[in-house]
């Protein structure tokens, strides 16, 4: 039952990313600005922080493959990088004291990592030929901002939700 609640929540965010977010006219902010919503990643990171890591990793693989199949053309890239990002950021989070500011900061780090991993892999296999300067200037910064704002909005409800879920099981 708990599992299905998490799945529905993540699946809803996954749908929002592809259907609602492209409708919002971000391109009117600036000519070249690319603002990418990584809501699934944000939720997965919070799940790993406040729920349990093993759930976070499991859902990272699952939703990574979903993203690969539905929104991308090459399989495996998102599955790999999402899982790696969740694991790495969780490893960092063990050293620090979790509060709102720290969570937002760690999510920002996670979004940067995720974007960079996918960028490097896509660059190697030739899906994109975006320049590195363009990537840092017009893509990374606004993307991190959007996702940081999103994290602040969902911090309290998500934290309570995941903590209550993880109370039931032993970590």
């Amino acid at each position: 039952m708990k599992q299905s609640k998490i799945f529905i929540l993540l699946f809803f965010l996954f749908l929002i990313q592809g259907t609602v977010m492209p409708l919002i006219p971000f391109y009117s902010v600036g000519n070249n600005v690319q603002i990418i919503s990584e809501f699934v990643l944000v939720a997965l990171l919070m799940l790993a922080f406040f729920g349990s890591l093993s759930w976070g990793l499991k859902y990272a693989i699952l939703f990574g493959f979903l993203i690969d199949i539905v929104y991308a053309s090459v399989l495996g890239v998102y599955a790999f990088s999402l899982t790696l990002t969740v694991y790495l950021v969780y490893s960092i989070s063990k050293w620090v004291n979790m509060n709102t500011a720290m969570t937002v900061l760690l999510v920002a780090v996670g979004v940067c990592m995720q974007q960079f991993e996918v960028y490097v892999i896509y660059l190697m296999i030739g899906v994109t030929d975006q320049q590195l300067g363009f990537f840092f200037q017009f893509r990374l910064l606004p993307t991190v901002c959007l996702n940081a704002v999103f994290t602040m909005l969902i911090y309290y409800p998500f934290r309570r939700f995941f903590e209550r879920l993880s109370d039931g099981i032993e970590k």
Binding site: P22, I36, Y71, A72, S73
Partner: peptide, 14 residues
């Protein structure tokens, strides 16, 4: 159109 890929690297529509 029902969705499009949200990262701008893949330019795909569904």
């Amino acid at each position: 159109l029902i969705s499009r890929s949200y990262d701008q690297w893949n330019q795909l529509l569904t």
